Every structure is written in C-alpha cells, then in structure tokens.
Amino acid sequence: MRFGLLDRYILKIAAVATVILLVGLTSVIWVTQALREVDLITGKGQTVVIFFTVTLLSLPALIAGIAPVALFMATLYTLNKLNSDSELIVMNATGVAPKRLTRPFLVLTLATAALVGWMSVSVMPAGFRALRDLITMIRADFVANVVKEGQFVALDSGVTFHYRERSGQALLGIFMQDRRDPNQPAIYIAERGQTAEADGNSFLMLEKGTIQRESRDRNSSSIISFERYALNLSALSGDSDGAGGGDGDKVIYKPRERTTWALLTQDKNEPYYKIQEGRFRAELHNRLSAPLYPIAFMLVAFAVLGEARTTRQGRAVAIQLAILLVGAIRIGAYAAWTASVRSGFAVVLLYVLPLVTIAVSASMIAFGARARAVLDRLTDSLAAPFLAISARWRRS
C-alpha cells in the first residue's frame, strides 16, 4: 500500500490526536489510582521509589484499556476537523472515495491493535506478577521494620498482625488472625518469629506456637501445636478468589498474573484451577480478543463520520450515535467477560461483538451512498424530537 501526501497528512493529525488523548487519559486515571497508594509512604514506611514503582506497574493495564477509546476519539476528532475545514468536501469533489480515506486510519489502527495486543498478552501479566512480588517484599519489610510493638495492624484485608516486643531481629509474642476465608478463620500464636527470604518468597518463621482453626460449616475447631512453622507472606493476598493458599504453601499466582502461554498450557489437575476454572477461561479470552476492539471502534467512527456533512446538527447527532454505539459495545464486552467466568458460551461474545461491529461498519463504508442514506434517516429520526423541543422553546 503506497502512501501519498494526503495519507501522511491525515495520519499525522490522527496519530498526534491519539497520542495526546492516550497520554492525557492515562495520566489522569493513573494519578487517581496513585493517590490511593499514598498509604505506602504514610502508613507502611516505604520510599518514594517503591511508591512510584507500585503505581507504574499498573500502567500496562491502563494503556490496554484506554488505547481503543483514545483511537476512537482521535478518529472522531480528525474526521470532524477535516469536515469543518471543508477538506472532506474538497476530497469528495475531486473523486476521493470515503473508503480510500480509511488507509491512514487503518495504519494507525493496526499499530494501536498491536500495542493493545502486546500489553494484554505479554506486558500486563508480567506487570501484575512483578507487582505481586513487590507487594510481598513490602509486606515482609512492613512486618520486620515498620510494625510497632503492641500495635494491631492489617497486613491485608482480613489479616490482622500483632507482636508484643522486639528482641534484636526477632519478634516476640506473635499473634495473627486470618479471616480471609469466613468459613474457616485461623489464629496463629507463637512465642517468637523472624522474617526470612527463600526461593524469591518472604516467610515469617514462627517458633513454639499453635494454629487454631474453626470450621463454621461444621461448627468445629482444631488446635495444632508446632515447634517451627514457616508462614509464607507471599501467599497472603487480600483477594477473594482463593489465590495464594496459605499454611506455608508455595505462592499461587492468580490468572491475571500468569503468562498467556501458561494459561494456554494450563494443567487441568491443578487444585486452584479446578476452583477457579472460569476465571482462567475469562482471562485468557479477554487477552486474545483485546486487539479486535481498536479496529471495531475506529470503523464505527469512520462509518458515521467518514463522508462530508454540510450541517452541524447532522455531525453532532452522528457523533452522539457513534459514542452510544461504542459505549454499548464496551459495556457488552465487560458483561460478556463477567459472564464468561460462569459460562463458557459467553466467551464467544467477546469475539462476536467486535467482529460483527467490524463487519457492519466495513459494509457501511464499502457501500457508501446506500449506507449513508440509511444512516442519515437514522440520525434524522433521532434528532427530530430534540429539534421539535428546541423549536417550541424558541417560540415560547
């Protein structure tokens, strides 16, 4: 595909708009998320470097989610600008068909889809995994150096920690309550303990203590005494999906923290997989379908605004229609992702939604005048009630 001066001109406008929107939207959302992590500095005694590292590891997920929307908004902006400056009218008058103008947008869309695919398939799970490991390190440092004598503090949601006093590097009189599983809460009591690192995991080595477990389903309890017990801090996760296990087991990564290859070659006999099979399925297909949405969103914008429009009202209604369509697709995709946790059939919708949108939008662009007539009738019918209300308001 040979690029001419017109293609480069349109591509420059759309690309600059996409980058500005992507950076702007990502920065705003990142700041709001970063403010929620200020407790790392104020409450858990971490450095500014750790604070920024934790918040920056969430950027791949933000970029993967925001990039399709930024591309859609940039496409609307570019087409509206070309139309407002009468450039689309001139192009049409000189015989440039609307579908010919899709070339620069397709180049930008394929680049955006590649970015989203790379983020979703590779970078995002690596970021979540690194974040999990970093939080483990923060938790171990918090237990060893930040928690003060005699205080009851929350290590995670449902996990309360306390120790009586410190003797060198050892903590004396340890008490920990784990209520993450409401049906089987546990209480750990030990005379002393000390944090340690092994195989990339952080452990709290407990000495001379007991573990009391309650089973509320059976209304029973059990007490286990131990001389030495390794409590894996990496397994303490505040999430409610059951990841991480406990009792010193090896840390278990959640579906979003596993590589795409690991999800594709998942061991069906893994106990955690048997419990959370739906989450594994939803996570895998959400990653694989993610690159389709930038293509769908761009084609929706182009199908609605790709041809010259001479009335401002027509453009405004067309833009509103495009926003409604993209919003409906995004909500439908989120609903399909949620439903796919419980139903394997819902996985199909993750692909059907963008593919049907791509097919319909591409057909409207390809058939040109006929599709434009249908779209104009639709926008006119949507605009008619608002125009009637406006006319009545002016007469009154």
Results as ranks from 00 to 15, higher is better:
residue 264 L to W: 12
residue 291 P to R: 04
residue 288 L to V: 11
residue 214 E to N: 07
residue 295 I to S: 03
residue 345 F to Y: 09
residue 282 A to M: 12
residue 259 T to A: 12
residue 328 A to H: 03
residue 333 A to K: 09
residue 326 V to S: 05
residue 266 Q to W: 01
residue 307 E to V: 11
residue 258 R to A: 07
residue 337 W to N: 14
residue 315 R to S: 12
residue 302 F to R: 01
residue 289 S to T: 09
residue 234 S to H: 07
residue 339 A to P: 00
residue 224 I to V: 15
residue 268 K to G: 04
residue 256 R to I: 09
residue 262 A to E: 15
residue 314 G to P: 00
residue 224 I to C: 01
residue 256 R to L: 07
residue 341 V to S: 08
residue 311 T to Q: 12
residue 226 F to N: 03
residue 284 L to F: 07
residue 336 A to H: 05
residue 216 R to S: 02
residue 267 D to M: 11
residue 245 G to D: 07
residue 266 Q to M: 14
residue 325 L to D: 00
residue 309 R to C: 01
residue 335 A to I: 10
residue 221 S to P: 01
residue 272 Y to M: 11
residue 283 E to I: 06
residue 224 I to R: 05
residue 340 S to K: 04
residue 300 V to L: 09
residue 292 L to K: 03
residue 310 T to R: 10
residue 323 I to F: 14
residue 316 A to V: 13
residue 336 A to Y: 05
residue 278 G to T: 10
residue 350 L to W: 03
residue 262 A to I: 01
residue 258 R to Q: 14
residue 328 A to D: 03
residue 298 M to Y: 04
residue 215 S to Q: 09
residue 246 G to L: 10
residue 218 R to L: 13
residue 230 A to C: 02
residue 270 E to G: 09
residue 339 A to I: 02
residue 267 D to K: 13
residue 225 S to I: 01
residue 328 A to V: 11
residue 300 V to R: 03
residue 315 R to F: 00
residue 335 A to P: 00
residue 318 A to V: 03
residue 335 A to S: 12
residue 340 S to F: 08
residue 276 Q to G: 03
residue 255 P to A: 11
residue 229 Y to C: 01
residue 285 H to A: 06
residue 240 S to E: 11
residue 293 Y to P: 01
residue 259 T to M: 10
residue 348 V to R: 02
residue 280 F to R: 03
residue 277 E to G: 05
residue 241 D to S: 14
residue 287 R to P: 06
residue 260 T to P: 07
residue 331 I to K: 06
residue 257 E to G: 09
residue 323 I to A: 14
residue 344 G to S: 12
residue 288 L to M: 12
residue 286 N to I: 00
residue 332 G to H: 08
residue 313 Q to P: 00
residue 257 E to L: 07
residue 252 I to M: 13
residue 213 R to T: 14
residue 296 A to M: 06
residue 212 Q to F: 00
residue 234 S to I: 01
residue 245 G to W: 08
residue 284 L to I: 08
residue 254 K to A: 15
residue 318 A to C: 06
residue 283 E to T: 15
residue 251 V to H: 08
residue 228 R to P: 00
residue 231 L to A: 06
residue 258 R to L: 15
residue 219 N to I: 06
residue 261 W to I: 11
residue 288 L to Y: 04
residue 264 L to V: 13
residue 215 S to I: 01
residue 252 I to V: 15
residue 255 P to S: 10
residue 245 G to R: 02
residue 251 V to I: 13
residue 303 A to D: 02
residue 341 V to M: 10
residue 223 I to M: 13
residue 218 R to K: 14
residue 258 R to H: 06
residue 333 A to C: 01
residue 330 R to E: 07
residue 253 Y to Q: 04
residue 249 D to I: 05
residue 271 P to V: 13
residue 251 V to L: 14
residue 276 Q to T: 09
residue 214 E to V: 11
residue 271 P to H: 09
residue 350 L to K: 03
residue 212 Q to N: 13
residue 331 I to Q: 08
residue 315 R to V: 15
residue 313 Q to A: 15
residue 316 A to R: 13
residue 319 I to L: 09
residue 293 Y to M: 08
residue 343 S to M: 09
residue 348 V to Q: 05
residue 294 P to H: 04
residue 285 H to Y: 15
residue 300 V to E: 03
residue 312 R to D: 07
residue 311 T to A: 12
residue 337 W to D: 13
residue 253 Y to M: 10
residue 327 G to L: 11
residue 220 S to W: 02
residue 291 P to A: 08
residue 260 T to K: 06
residue 247 D to N: 13
residue 246 G to N: 10
residue 267 D to I: 11
residue 294 P to E: 04
residue 302 F to N: 01
residue 294 P to Q: 05
